[in-house]
């Protein structure tokens, strides 16, 4: 299967390790992974901050870059949701853009969706002997309706102890530019989220979105909690040999 990796601008720039993990995981599972070099950003920040024109331009760019692949895999629930849920609202019905979106958007998958729904695997052969709690990010949960896919994958990781996160479904307070436009409320939400994480006694907080982890991780680190954050892909890519 010819799979394109949509790395997302945040991962590309700040979390290359997540991208490397996706590549090694998908190859381990027998996929032929390609990285279309012309890709940049899905445009979510622009659209969601009120800059639709720029966002539409980036959406057009995305549909051009990713046309023709069997599947596009993104290690981000938020960016996958942008393409699948929001792109169709950006184009005029019946326009060329709408057709291009209708062609590409349904083949864009968040990583755990791709593993479970397309590759039909819940056990990716990973090994990660740590106490982990999982935060279902809002766009994964309510945008893409990932449900328990990520935790099904985590439960099959050898050595991993998955502990439930109280109030898991509550937003962490990141919200893109919300974090800097409404810093007080964002920080208060982040503080409550870190408190719940601390209550679990987990060593690692896992999520399917590095953007939320950037915010929660930044808060955990500022509070000197010692809890680290890891993207789902990085846990799933870990193997006994690599440890």
């Amino acid at each position: 299967m010819r799979v394109a990796l949509f790395i997302t601008c945040v991962n590309d720039t700040l979390f290359p390790g997540t991208g490397k993990a996706v590549v090694s995981l998908l190859r381990r599972l027998g996929c032929d992974v390609d990285f279309p070099a012309a890709q940049t950003c899905c445009g979510q920040m622009h659209v969601n901050t009120g800059y639709r024109e720029e966002g539409v331009r980036l959406a057009r760019h995305f549909t051009e870059v990713f046309a023709g692949y069997d599947a596009v895999v993104a290690p981000s629930g938020s960016c996958a949701a942008m393409v699948r849920e929001q792109y169709p609202k950006l184009a005029r019905p019946g326009s060329k853009g709408a057709a291009a979106i209708a062609e590409v958007a349904p083949r864009v998958y968040e990583l755990s969706e791709f593993l479970i729904d397309v590759l039909k695997t819940e056990d990716v052969g990973a090994y990660f002997p740590h106490r982990v709690t999982y935060h279902p990010t809002c766009h994964s949960l309510r945008g893409l309706h990932l449900g328990d896919r990520p935790t099904r994958l985590l439960r099959n990781v050898r050595g991993l102890e998955l502990v439930p996160l109280p109030g898991a479904e509550e937003c962490c307070g990141f919200g893109g530019t919300f974090a800097v436009k409404n810093p007080a409320v964002s920080a208060a939400m982040g503080a409550d989220k870190t408190r719940s994480i601390m209550d679990t006694g987990a060593e690692v907080l896992c999520a399917a979105d590095n953007s939320c982890l950037l915010h929660i991780g930044g808060t955990l680190s500022r509070q000197k909690t010692g809890v680290r954050t890891m993207h789902l892909a990085e846990i799933l890519a870990s193997t006994e040999e690599a440890q």
């Binding site: 790395i7 720039t13 290359p16 950037l214 930044g218 680190s221 500022r222």
Partner: peptide, 24 residues
């Protein structure tokens, strides 16, 4: 305006190399 971020959160370290450069 970015001080709104660092008032309560640490900034992530910028990696030595972006993913696209690594791939390249």
């Amino acid at each position: 305006p970015l001080s709104a971020w660092t008032d309560t959160r640490d900034v992530p370290e910028i990696p030595e190399e972006s993913f696209r450069d690594w791939w390249e």
